[in-house]
């Protein structure tokens, strides 16, 4: 009977010296490198109020959702682009990369494995970015509240602007939430990005508590 040896299991994650193709030698510590520890900068709103208001209006009317279905709730997001719900008429659009998206819809339960991807994607999103928590699982864990692998409160890991209750909420509820988000953006209260930057240590500590290592399997790269 072999004793489970975590050092042996992920031996390639030990600290080591790597030689680059150019011949440079540098030290790699994957355990540390994969933690996204760099503190984000606070981007204050534009001081000229009418300009900021105008920009917020455009941000609200042009919503680019990140096409990343993180849980079962994501199935409610897809009908929005169909002819029946047609979210395009409200300025909603889908982007495939986090860098071009502004709204992150967390579709339902977030397991620890998914949480790692959520944090990575969220940190890659640019500009004023907004998070919609879809389904009960993002609020208090929903039906997975006592699971060994499901996050209970999403707002301990990333700032959330609007929650949608229900298991599952219907697509109309999601459309309504987008409306609420628009109101929130237009009023200038949706400053989740700055909130994340200001409370970065707290968020990072919470994330590190569940995400032991930021290494990704080979297929992720």
């Amino acid at each position: 009977m072999a004793k489970m040896n975590y050092k042996k299991r992920w031996a390639d994650l030990e600290k080591r010296i790597v030689v680059s193709p150019e011949g440079e030698e540098f030290e790699v510590d994957p355990m540390q490198d994969y933690f996204c520890d760099a503190k984000p900068r606070v981007h204050p709103p534009n001081k000229i109020a009418p300009l900021e208001k105008f920009a917020n209006w455009c941000r609200a009317e042009s919503i680019y959702i990140l096409g990343f279905g993180t849980g079962c709730g994501a199935i409610e997001m897809r009908p929005l682009s169909s002819a029946m719900y047609d979210a395009y008429r409200f300025g909603v659009n889908w982007r495939a990369t986090p860098r071009q998206a502004t709204v992150f819809v967390i579709g339902g339960y977030a397991s620890v494995k998914t949480m790692k991807r959520i944090v990575r994607s969220y940190e890659q999103m640019q500009g004023p970015k907004f998070v919609l928590g879809l389904c009960s699982c993002t609020i208090n864990g929903g039906m997975y509240w006592d699971s060994y692998n499901t996050v209970n409160r999403l707002d301990h890991y990333i700032p959330v602007d609007v929650y949608i209750t229900g298991c599952m909420p219907r697509p109309e509820a999601l459309l309504d939430a987008i409306d609420q988000l628009k109101k929130r953006i237009k009023s200038g209260r949706a400053e989740g990005q700055n909130k994340y930057a200001e409370n970065f240590e707290w968020y990072k500590a919470n994330q590190k508590k569940i995400i032991k290592n930021w290494d990704m399997p080979d297929y992720s790269w």
Binding site: P40, R41, H43, F54, A55, C58, R59, E61, S62, Y88, G91, N93, T102, Q126, G127, P128, Q193
Partner: peptide, 14 residues
């Protein structure tokens, strides 16, 4: 809508 998209994109903060 294209106007909103392009102004929103130019107004990105980071």
């Amino acid at each position: 809508q294209p106007y909103f998209n392009i102004i929103r994109q130019w107004a990105t903060r980071s």
